[in-house]
Design a protein around this nucleic acid. Structure first.
Lengths: 209, 209
DNA sequence: AGAATTATCCCTGTAAAAGGGGATTTTTTA
DNA sequence: TAAAAAATCCCCTTTTACAGGGATAATTCT
C-alpha cells in the first residue's frame, strides 16, 4: 500500500519540484501539497501522512509553531525540515522539537531524495551544512547566556527603544532596578553597550520581530 | 528552430522545477541552468540565450551586478527576474537596469509560464505583487529604507558596539560626521534610539552575524 | 528550613547619545 | 555640465547610558 507525504510549503515552484521528484523516483509515495501552516494542520486531522516536508518560513505561521502544534497531537510524526537560510537558533529550536531531518533548499536532488528515504525508513538525515552549524555551536565562544524572566522582559523593552525610566514605569519598578538588569545583561552577553547587546540578542533569536 | 533559455539560480529545486515546467509546456524552448553568476556570465559568451531567468539572490554576486555586466555586453537581452523577497529598492534598481519582467518565487506555475511566454515574445510581465510594491512606494511599511554605502558601514559598526569616536577613528573621518550618519539612520528607520535602530536593522537582515 | 538566586533599590561621577540647529565639499546621476 | 545626492564638518544643550561601587527584600530550589 502506498505511503503518503505532506508538503507544507508556500512556494509552488518548490513544492511542485519536490512532488515531481518524489513521483518519478519513489513510486510507493503519494504526495499532497499545501501552501499554509493552517491548511497543513487541517490536513493532519483528516489524513495521516507518513512524512511531512516542512518549510520553515511559512506565510501564516513559523515552522516552529507548526511543529509544536502538530507534534502535540501526533507525537511520532516524521518531519523533514526545509530551510533556505541557515540560522543557528532556528535550527536548534527545530531540533529541540524533534525533527527527523534537516535539509537546505540549496541541496541537490539526490540529497533531497536520500533525506526523504532515510526519514521515511525511520532514520535521521541532516545535511552537511546543517551539521556544521550544530558543530560550531560548541566551539562557538559561549552559548546563549541563561537569562532570568525579568532580564528577558527588560531586554525586549530595551530593544524596542524604551529608556530605563520608561521601562520602570511600564513594569512598576524603579529606574535603578532597570539599570541593574541592564548592567547584568551587558555582563552576561559580554556586550560593550546597548547596541551590541541588541545585536547579539537578535543573533540568538531572542527578540521577536 | 528551438529557442534557448538560461536559468541562473543557485537552488537546484527551483531551477529543476522551472526547467521541468518549460520542457513540458513550451516545447520550442531549450533550457540550460547554472548555479552561479560567474558561470552564467561565462555561458553568455559561448551561447546566446533568447531569455534569461535570473535569481536576484545569487551566492557569488547580486542580481544587480550580474545584470549590469550582462546587459553591458548584450544590450537587448531579455531578462525575467525571480525574487523571493520583495524589497522596493532592489525591484527599482532592477527595473532601472531594464529587466523585461519580474515574478516572485511564490507565484504559481501558470503565472510563471505566462511570464516566460510574454517576455520571450517581446513583451513585459510584472506580477501583481511587484506592481503593488512599485505603486505603494510612498507607503513604506514592509520596505527597507534605502541606505547609502556609508550609512550601512556606520550602521554595522554601531551594532558592533563602537562609539562615534571609535567609528570615526576607524573610517578616518570626524566624529561629527559619524554623528550625522547616526542621526540620518535614526530618521530613516524611524528609530527612537540606538537600541531600536539595531533591532530594526537586524529584523531586516542588514546585520551579519 | 536554609541556601542560592533573583529582584529590588540606592549613590556618584563620567562618557556618550539624542535633539536641535547649521554649513561646505565631493560624488553621483540625469 | 548642471542638479541632486551623499559625505563631510561644526556647535550647543539636554538626556540617557555606563562604570563603579553597595545593600536589602523576595523568590526558588534543595
Amino acid at each position: 500500500m502506498p505511503q503518503l507525504a505532506l508538503i507544507v510549503e508556500d512556494h509552488p515552484i518548490v513544492s511542485n519540484s519536490i512532488s515531481g521528484l518524489i513521483q518519478s523516483n519513489i513510486r510507493e509515495l503519494e504526495c499532497h501539497a499545501v501552501n499554509t501552516g493552517q491548511s497543513g494542520l487541517a490536513y493532519l486531522n483528516s489524513h495521516k501522512p507518513d512524512i511531512i516536508l516542512l518549510d520553515i518560513n511559512l506565510p501564516d505561521m513559523s515552522g516552529i509553531d507548526f511543529l509544536r502544534d502538530a507534534s502535540a497531537r501526533f507525537p511520532n510524526l516524521k518531519v523533514l525540515a526545509l530551510t533556505s537560510i541557515e540560522q543557528r537558533h532556528v535550527v536548534e529550536q527545530m531540533m529541540a522539537l524533534g525533527v527527523n531531518g534537516f535539509i537546505l533548499k540549496s541541496s541537490d536532488t539526490e540529497e533531497i531524495l536520500e533525506a526523504i528515504s532515510t526519514v521515511l525508513n525511520g532514520g535521521q538525515y541532516f545535511s552537511k551544512q546543517v551539521s556544521l552549524i550544530l558543530k560550531n555551536k560548541n566551539s562557538n565562544q559561549s552559548n546563549i547566556p541563561l537569562l532570568t524572566r525579568r532580564e528577558v522582559e527588560v531586554l525586549r523593552l530595551i530593544s524596542d527603544g524604551l529608556t530605563n525610566q520608561e521601562i520602570a514605569d511600564k513594569l512598576f519598578i524603579s529606574a535603578w532596578t532597570v539599570d541593574s538588569h541592564r548592567k547584568n545583561l551587558l555582563v552576561k552577553f559580554d556586550a560593550k553597550n546597548t547596541a551590541s547587546l541588541v545585536k547579539i540578542a537578535a543573533s540568538h533569536g531572542l527578540l521577536d520581530y
